[in-house]
Simulated scan of single mutants.
Amino acid sequence: MSAGIGRVGVVGGGQMGAGIAEMCARAGLDTVVCEVDTVAARAARDRVAASLDRAVRRGRLEEATARDALARMVFTGSLDDLADRQLVVEAVIENPEAKTEVFAALDKIVEDPAAVLATNTSSLPIMRLGMATARADRVVGLHFFNPVPVLPLVEVVTSLHTSAGTTAAVEDFATRTLGKTIIRSKDRAGFVVNALLIPYLLSAVRMAESGFATAADIDTGMELGCAHPMGPLKLADLIGLDTVASISESLFDEFRQPLYAPPPLLQRMVEAGLLGRKAGRGFHTYDQG
């Protein structure tokens, strides 16, 4: 266990937040997951339980380990239940106002001045979130990848205020406690992975939008021609087209380069609720059952 970090909180119990919380509980940590209300908190618990069950069925996790992990977790609808946490990871919607509001609230609620407040944002400036608190030196980016229990990477993103002690603590937490591999990034929109990935995904969207090739052919081309495990439009559907659009907008706002601009087709699909796998339809159609 990472020295000094035994009590972890996760704000947001969606796909990413549930995955982060599951990893923490499996690592033996006392884990509290906070959602907007008790109904959403119960849904988050069901999400984690389903993930643990899948891991057991696939032989990746012992049944007793899964049972113990779930027993270490508390699901709540109140941020006040995070008061005693030593590390809190924010994983709410990729919206600057929502995330800033969470950090401002956590700054008042989390009692230990040495506690670390981390964000799982995939594109927003860490500095902006840190400045919503009175402890910007204790704010850092911990960007996990979906699905969190499977993918081994975490991006550690430091702002101009993040202290060396904070950085060392979260790097030790991610590597030694959770068993992840880390890469380091400066505080720029998109960090390392999305700054490279999003232009690729947007290029595939533009190709489909222009009628140059079908979504199926674009994905098959990259899977069989470049040995990618998943084509770009399937990957965009998995990430969520709303999330892809949000990251794209953040990148374009920061760098003002055309390759980061969200294509009209992507914007229209988001407006239509065609968000990809989670909605049952995006560039491909999915069985919600």
Rank of each mutant, 00 (worst) to 15 (best):
G4R: 02
G9P: 04
G12W: 02
G13S: 10
G13L: 05
G14L: 04
Q15T: 15
G17N: 04
G17Q: 07
A18R: 02
I20T: 03
A27L: 03
L29T: 01
L29H: 03
T31N: 01
T31F: 00
C34F: 00
T38E: 15
A40Y: 01
A43I: 01
A43H: 08
A44K: 02
A44G: 14
R47E: 09
V48E: 08
V48G: 10
A49P: 02
D53G: 01
R54F: 03
G59M: 13
E62L: 11
E62P: 08
R67V: 12
D68M: 01
L70N: 09
A71F: 04
A71H: 11
R72W: 11
F75K: 00
E90Y: 07
A91P: 00
I93T: 14
E94Q: 05
E94K: 08
P96R: 12
L106T: 12
K108S: 14
K108W: 03
I109F: 04
A114N: 13
T119H: 06
N120D: 11
S122H: 05
S123V: 09
P125F: 04
M131V: 10
M131C: 11
A132L: 07
A132M: 06
A132I: 06
T133M: 07
A134D: 15
R138S: 06
R138H: 08
V139K: 00
G141V: 06
G141N: 08
L142V: 14
L142P: 01
L142N: 02
F145M: 13
N146E: 14
L151F: 13
L153P: 07
V154S: 00
L160W: 04
H161M: 14
T162E: 01
T162I: 03
A164D: 15
A168E: 14
F173Y: 06
G179N: 11
T181G: 08
I183N: 02
R188K: 13
F191A: 10
V192H: 02
V193R: 02
N194Y: 13
I198P: 00
Y200T: 14
L201S: 09
S203Y: 12
V205E: 04
R206P: 04
M207C: 15
M207G: 08
A208C: 13
S210Q: 14
S210H: 04
F212C: 13
F212G: 07
A213T: 12
T214I: 10
G221A: 15
E223W: 02
L224F: 15
G225L: 13
A227F: 10
A227I: 06
H228Y: 15
P232K: 01
L233P: 00
K234S: 12
L235A: 11
L235F: 05
L235W: 00
A236E: 06
D237Q: 07
D237K: 06
L238Q: 07
G240N: 11
L241T: 06
D242Q: 03
T243I: 15
V244D: 09
V244N: 05
A245N: 09
I247Y: 05
I247T: 05
I247A: 09
E249R: 12
F252T: 01
F255W: 13
Q257Y: 01
P258S: 12
Y260A: 05
P262T: 10
L266E: 05
Q267G: 11
Q267M: 14
M269V: 10
A272E: 15
A272N: 13
A272K: 13
A272T: 03
G276S: 11
G276E: 04
R277V: 09
K278A: 14
A279R: 07
G280P: 02
G282K: 03
H284V: 11
T285D: 13
T285I: 12
T285H: 12
G289P: 00
